[in-house]
Amino acid sequence: MQKLVLAVVCALAAGPSLANDPNIVAIADTCNSCHGINGVSAGLTMPSIAGQNKDYLQRVLLEQKKGERYTTIMDRFMKNISDEEIAALAQYFAAKEWVPATVAVEMTQANQGRQVLRKTCQNCHGEKGDKNSGDVPRLAGQWPGYIRLETFKYVDRTFTAKKPSERMAEKVHNLTENEHSAVAHFLGTRK
């Protein structure tokens, strides 16, 4: 009996597997026109969401839905999606394979970017920028255009909305424009 109870509790803790529900897949497919088939973006500033960790995706989508996190258009989509559906969508895309961006390496920029990563980003994002858990999104292999748009939020004086992360604000506000582009490029060339 105890074993049975334990099994039921475990099943509940794992949550119902909504991610394969055809209704969730149908919603997920509407994301593809912007984010790419199965969430693998073809570029240029659109982030790949396939293989990004579930907790991060879920948190960001919920914050966008509640208007707590600035986004150009995602808030307008998320207002139609229930919290349960958001959890399922996060699970769905997290389970997809991460497919790195295709970016031709430019050596000078990549080397400069590597330095910036070591100096500024690796404590949270990992030595290779591939840490992907909790509230840390995977950056290695993400599209540079997207990373640049995100980090510019912390330095562009016209961006007056609340910054998504205080830690990021501390870290990147002193970077030069070149350093922003360089680290985005370097991360984009990683696999």
Partner: peptide, 16 residues
């Protein structure tokens, strides 16, 4: 950002 995301939308929907 919206102009850039517009171009990226084009990139992705034409790829799709």
């Amino acid at each position: 950002a919206e102009a850039e995301y517009g171009y990226s939308w084009l990139k992705n929907i034409t790829t799709e």
